[in-house]
């Protein structure tokens, strides 16, 4: 049994790990460099060559520490680092082609989550007759899922010739993605915490059942929640169980409310310290998938990946997530530095 203090201490230790690792690597590299310097004057030419190679590699290590590793440690640990994620996808312009692309994107995220060891389940989807999906909600359970994926929020645009297009004309369609934060206890149906009060949530069952009870054995399990103060509504009908739909609906409601709260926190912080970090505007087009040019471009950081297949079938999404995280860290760093001036 570990006490809460033990857990807190263990967590603190874990958080200090990167700092400790960076510092030991730095001191180790410096020591090696000092040992290498005399060897560069060695009478043996082979030894001089080896030493010079060593010197180049060590100076590179040290300068990386100064330019990247140490500054990145300035970024305060994320307050959302434990959270899981809900991914909401909605087909935008482009009709059935957008619905097909939604399915492609959904597969990318499911595969990526699987490769990281996160568990996924599609908690809501509406399929179209052409085999695509009009919308979907993907639950991703795994610590850090929200932090890793939150940059995926925004409009994703695809430019390709639809399978159904006989004239070979390129179409442009879009899918809107929203990444929501999901806490461990999000399925709880009791309220009265920081996110909402139970009395503010109206729970409605959908559709009339006539006399109901023994008179009717039709499956009718759809549920709708309305959070009165914000006007947020959540409808769930994918499960056969009303109980289960209600649980899911509360999960989505909590995620949306937490999302609102996090955005507000960021806005407040920006107001107080003139923060430079941009917030994601969710109607903003963030990425283009161009099939003719076999290219994926992220418009926020100007990164292009020349191999669409590696994005859709492989782990190309990792490159974008890494780049976006670095970009965010740099913005936070600038902010921290700016604040201390």
């Amino acid at each position: 049994m570990s006490s809460p203090e033990d857990i807190a201490r263990a967590r603190q230790l874990k958080e200090l790990e990167p700092l400790h690792e960076a510092w030991s690597n730095w001191t180790h590299a410096r020591q090696s460099l000092e040992e290498t310097l005399p060897l560069m004057q060695d009478p043996d030419p082979t030894m001089r060559t080896l030493a010079s190679e060593e010197f180049t590699s060590l100076t590179h290590t040290l300068s990386t520490h100064i330019s990247t590793t140490f500054p990145s440690l300035l970024v305060p640990p994320s307050s959302t680092r434990d959270l899981h994620a809900l991914l909401e996808l909605k087909a935008g312009v482009g009709g059935s082609e957008a619905a097909l692309f939604l399915l492609d994107l959904l597969r990318v995220y499911v595969r990526y989550a699987g490769s990281v060891g996160w568990r996924t389940s599609i908690i809501q989807s509406s399929e179209t007759e052409s085999g695509g999906m009009r919308d979907a909600i993907l639950e991703i359970k795994g610590e850090g899922a929200y932090d890793a994926l939150r940059w995926e929020s925004g409009v994703h645009r695809v430019q390709r010739v639809p399978a159904t297009e006989s004239s070979g004309r390129t179409h442009t369609s879009t899918v809107a993605v929203i990444v929501l934060p999901l806490s461990e206890d999000a399925e709880s149906m009791s309220g009265n915490d920081e996110l909402f009060k139970m009395e503010d949530v109206k729970v409605e069952v959908m559709r009339a059942r006539g006399a109901g009870g023994q008179h009717v054995n039709k499956t009718e399990s759809a549920v709708r929640l309305t959070h009165t103060p914000t006007g947020i509504t959540v409808s769930m009908q994918d499960e056969r169980s009303q109980h289960q739909n209600k649980r899911r609906a509360f999960q989505v409601l909590r995620a949306r409310l937490m999302d609102v709260k996090l955005s507000q926190d960021i806005a407040n912080r920006r107001a107080t310290r003139r923060n430079l970090v941009r917030t994601a505007d969710r109607s903003e087009k963030i990425r283009t998938y161009n099939y003719a040019q076999d290219r994926v471009t992220d418009h926020r950081i100007g990164l292009s990946l020349m191999n669409l297949t590696s994005f859709l079938e492989g782990d190309g999404v990792q490159d974008f997530l890494d780049a976006l995280r670095r970009n965010w860290q740099e913005e936070v760093m600038e902010d921290v530095v700016g604040e201390s001036e």
Partner: peptide, 22 residues
């Protein structure tokens, strides 16, 4: 059929549990 968190067997002719009862 689901009944709360349970998943119960249903066989004819025994009455199917209803959501009202749940």
């Amino acid at each position: 059929t689901p009944f709360g968190p349970l998943d119960l067997l249903t066989r004819p002719p025994t009455l199917i549990p209803r959501p009202e009862t749940e």
